[in-house]
Design a protein around this nucleic acid. Structure first.
Lengths: 143, 143
DNA sequence: TTGGTTGCAAACAATTTGCATAAAT
DNA sequence: ATTTATGCAAATTGTTTGCAACCAA
């Protein structure tokens, strides 16, 4: 696993403290199968003793998104309306989000991707991107 | 096709003028394969000579969503962050949105749905919902 | 009549931006 | 030394809410 400094150097961004710390926390979140919102990042950084302003967090996330290091998602539908961010390691993928725990399972399915292309083509279009969020719940033992 | 008054009566909502007009415009938008945001609805209503406040539009949309007459979506990713609404005629479906024209093509694919269930089950989950937005562009004549 | 509905303006939440200060190269 | 990034507070955007006036049943 690469360090924050490394990642930043690789994409040509100054290794400032806020950027390094934010990357560290995104790395950690990745390990717990969670995607963080700007606010959650802010709180986690505070608890870790880092005083980093919210605006900086937003700006850093924009930077990181621009160079392709993070991806932004909008999992919530309805009332709440915040973005969550994840480190992107290159390969595009879809998400399953547990409605109870917010656990995120990333997956990729060639069958689904192929069907999307076929359907688009059937209508005279070509696919330029997609976002699939499957909302799930842990299966009950038995009913 | 049913009238706004009819639809409202069917779900037990008072047939107020704002509600009827909003339904009419959603019906019309449906015909042009577009989903409207609250703001767009407001503008269209204004142009049609109806002075209906934005808050009323939001409240009506909430009402209609609660009784299942409309569905709310969040197609935009990134910067813009507004919801768009469509009349829901019962059957769930996925969306293809043209990045150039905002044209919306609704589709349903048993293969994709089945795969989602299979993948969820493989992880010990069951599907409770999903949102799939395929971003597309008109295919160039030839290259 | 009377309780649900509207309109306005003010409140909100999430995010962005202006600007003076601070920090990396 | 110079350029770029940060922090704060104020501005924006999209949406919700309080409350008095209003209207459909």
């Amino acid at each position: 696993m690469e360090s924050g400094e490394h990642l930043l150097a690789r994409v040509g961004l100054k290794a400032t403290l806020p950027r390094v710390r934010i990357l560290q926390h995104l790395l950690a979140a990745n390990d717990e199968y969670r995607h963080l919102s700007a606010e959650e990042l802010y709180v986690r950084l505070l608890k870790a003793g880092e005083r980093i302003g919210v605006s900086t967090i937003y700006r850093v996330l924009v930077n990181l998104e621009q160079v392709g290091l993070v991806t932004r998602h909008q999992f919530d539908q309805g009332a709440v309306n915040r973005s969550v961010y994840e480190l992107s390691f290159g390969e595009p993928h879809d998400h399953m989000v547990c409605v109870d725990t917010d656990t995120v399972i990333e997956f990729r399915d060639p069958v689904i991707e192929a069907r999307q292309r076929e359907i688009a083509e059937a209508h005279g279009y070509e696919v330029v991107g997609c976002e699939l969020v499957v909302r799930v719940r842990r299966r009950k033992a038995e009913c």
